[in-house]
Design a protein around this nucleic acid. Sequence first.
DNA 1: GGCCTATATTGACAAACTTCGATATATCTG
DNA 2: CAGATATATCGAAGTTTGTCAATATAGGCC
Lengths: 120, 120
Amino acid sequence: MATPRKHTAQKVKPNTPCCGLVEELELLDTEAAALAVLFKALANPVRLQILDILSRHNGDICVCDIEGQFALSQPTISHHLGVLRRAGLVTKEQRGLWVYYSLRPEILAQAKEFLEGLTG
Amino acid sequence: MATPRKHTAQKVKPNTPCCGLVEELELLDTEAAALAVLFKALANPVRLQILDILSRHNGDICVCDIEGQFALSQPTISHHLGVLRRAGLVTKEQRGLWVYYSLRPEILAQAKEFLEGLTG
DNA sequence: GGCCTATATTGACAAACTTCGATATATCTG
DNA sequence: CAGATATATCGAAGTTTGTCAATATAGGCC
């Protein structure tokens, strides 16, 4: 069966969508852009591992210890932490000479809820 | 208070992590890399909108109708669908001249579960 | 077979990302 | 204040991504 229901149900004109679907996008451009900012920050294995470390030492591990877990330079880890912070996924707090990053669960939840909505 | 507990509890030597944390990464490189593949595929607003469309017409909307929702060229949409498929987030099925993509909930769940694990 | 339509692939180009070494900033210590 | 340490920023090099026009592939129809 080569022709699905929708295509036989209405005339297919050249240069128009084959099924004539005219529905608007339900996920608006602005919403999609905001979510993409979150997923972009998650789209790197080092940052995922940093988040995993933070989740197990939340607010109680300094940047230099995070650096110690990777075979990457200090500026590179600092860069990844900056990406996470600018995306809103973590906050930073300076205590003396050391800086401590913490997860922001309410922001992580936004990404999670989008995924839940897809499979709902 | 400039010196947190951990730092006073043990000697800080130069050229070593300040807190002497020696714990191994719990999220292994291979796991992080596999998750990053998923999040990379999610890290684009157009692909998020495509996933949203698929979630509401799962298996019942052809590629040309997806194209009709965007002000982007046909090859660009085809490219984004390919990214989603190679990441494992969707499958494709050809019926006659048309191609239908469907979500793979079990793969989306892997990304979701990682996020849940962080805030758990 | 020959034409039309739907989708994929290719090649090119600009923009964004990842990483590093070098350097700057800021805080503590003596 | 001078020196040391923790972290951030800058600038450069290489890689990846997003987009398009052009072209290829493949199925259906006459």
